[in-house]
Measured scan of single mutants.
Amino acid sequence: TETVELHKLKLAELKQECLARGLETKGIKQDLIHRLQAYLEEHAE
């Protein structure tokens, strides 16, 4: 999932992505995007 794609997701979809990775789901859309980006960078293959 790339940065551009995360911005296209709806808030509910971002929350699902966070939940699937065991991440916090509180906060505004930008918080969730930032959290997912950090996770994806950390776990990049």
Results as ranks from 00 to 15, higher is better:
Thr1Pro: 07
Thr1Met: 09
Thr1Ile: 13
Thr1Val: 12
Thr1Lys: 15
Glu2Met: 14
Glu2Gly: 12
Glu2Arg: 08
Glu2Lys: 14
Thr3His: 07
Val4Met: 14
Val4Ser: 15
Glu5Ile: 15
Glu5Asp: 13
Leu6Glu: 03
Lys8Thr: 08
Leu9Trp: 08
Leu9Val: 02
Leu9Ser: 03
Lys10Ser: 12
Leu11Met: 13
Leu11Asn: 03
Leu11Trp: 09
Leu11Ile: 10
Ala12Met: 08
Ala12Asp: 14
Glu13Trp: 01
Glu13Val: 07
Leu14Thr: 01
Leu14Met: 01
Lys15Asp: 01
Lys15Gly: 01
Lys15Ser: 03
Lys15Cys: 05
Lys15Gln: 14
Lys15Trp: 02
Cys18Val: 01
Leu19Met: 09
Leu19Trp: 08
Ala20Ser: 10
Arg21Gly: 00
Arg21Cys: 04
Arg21Ala: 04
Arg21Tyr: 06
Arg21Lys: 10
Arg21Ile: 01
Gly22Lys: 02
Gly22Val: 00
Gly22Met: 01
Leu23Trp: 00
Leu23Glu: 00
Leu23Ala: 00
Leu23Arg: 00
Leu23Ser: 01
Leu23Lys: 00
Glu24Arg: 05
Glu24Val: 06
Thr25His: 05
Thr25Gly: 05
Lys26Met: 08
Lys26Gly: 14
Lys26Arg: 11
Gly27Phe: 01
Gly27Cys: 01
Gly27Lys: 00
Gly27Trp: 00
Ile28Arg: 14
Ile28Lys: 15
Ile28Glu: 15
Lys29Met: 05
Lys29Thr: 03
Lys29Asp: 02
Lys29Ala: 08
Lys29Leu: 02
Gln30Asn: 15
Gln30Val: 10
Gln30Trp: 05
Gln30Thr: 11
Gln30Ile: 14
Gln30Gly: 09
Gln30Cys: 08
Asp31Ser: 04
Asp31Arg: 02
Asp31Trp: 00
Leu32Val: 04
Leu32Met: 03
Ile33Gln: 07
Ile33Thr: 07
His34Leu: 12
His34Gln: 14
His34Ala: 14
His34Met: 15
His34Thr: 14
Leu36Gly: 03
Leu36Arg: 02
Leu36Asp: 02
Leu36His: 02
Leu36Val: 04
Gln37Val: 07
Gln37Cys: 06
Gln37Pro: 03
Ala38Trp: 06
Ala38Glu: 12
Ala38Thr: 13
Ala38Cys: 09
Ala38Ser: 11
Tyr39Cys: 08
Tyr39Gly: 06
Leu40His: 15
Leu40Cys: 06
Leu40Arg: 14
Glu41Pro: 12
Glu41Asp: 13
Glu41Gln: 15
Glu42Arg: 12
Glu42Pro: 09
Glu42Phe: 10
Glu42Leu: 10
Glu42Ser: 12
Glu42Lys: 12
His43Asp: 09
His43Asn: 09
His43Pro: 06
Ala44Lys: 10
Ala44Trp: 06
Ala44Asp: 15
Ala44Leu: 07
Ala44Pro: 14
Glu45Arg: 11
